[in-house]
C-alpha cells in the first residue's frame, strides 16, 4: 500500500540547513526500512503554470490552480502496510522537515 505525504508550508521560505539535514536522516531511514518510494521538494507556487487542454486548445495560466496561504512544498511517496504505520512515518517526516504533512492513500 502506498501513501502520499504532502508537505504543507505557509511561507515563501526554503528548508534550513538543519531541516535539510533532518530530512536526509529521515530519508535514509525510509530507505533502510523499506518504506522509500520517491520524494521531492517543489518550487514555490509562483513558479507554477496551470494548463487546461480539456477543450483541445491548451490554455496556460500563470500561477497555482488555487491561491491560498498554504501550499504544497514537497512530498514523499512511501510504502506502508496500513495507515497506522503511515501515520507514524508521517509524524517523523513532519518533525524532520518542520512542516505540516497530509497523508493520503493511493487507490
Amino acid at each position: 500500500m502506498q501513501y502520499l505525504f504532502s508537505v504543507i508550508h505557509d511561507a515563501a521560505t526554503l528548508a534550513t540547513d538543519d531541516e535539510m539535514a533532518a530530512i536526509d536522516v529521515f530519508n535514509d531511514k525510509l530507505v533502510a526500512d523499506g518504506h522509500w518510494v520517491f520524494a521531492g521538494g517543489l518550487g514555490g507556487p509562483t513558479t507554477a503554470t496551470v494548463i487546461d487542454n480539456r477543450g483541445g486548445d491548451a490554455l496556460f495560466t500563470d500561477g497555482p490552480f488555487l491561491e491560498s496561504k498554504e501550499y504544497l512544498a514537497g512530498f514523499w511517496i512511501v510504502e506502508a502496510e496500513d495507515l497506522d504505520v503511515a501515520l507514524k512515518l508521517a509524524a517523523e517526516g513532519s518533525k524532520a522537515c518542520n512542516r505540516k504533512v497530509e497523508v493520503r492513500p493511493f487507490l
Partner: peptide, 14 residues
C-alpha cells in the same frame, strides 16, 4: 477502507 485503517488491537506502546 481506502486509507487502510487497520483492523487490530493497537500495540502495547500505543
Amino acid at each position: 477502507k481506502a486509507a487502510r485503517i487497520p483492523y487490530r488491537v493497537p500495540s502495547a506502546e500505543d
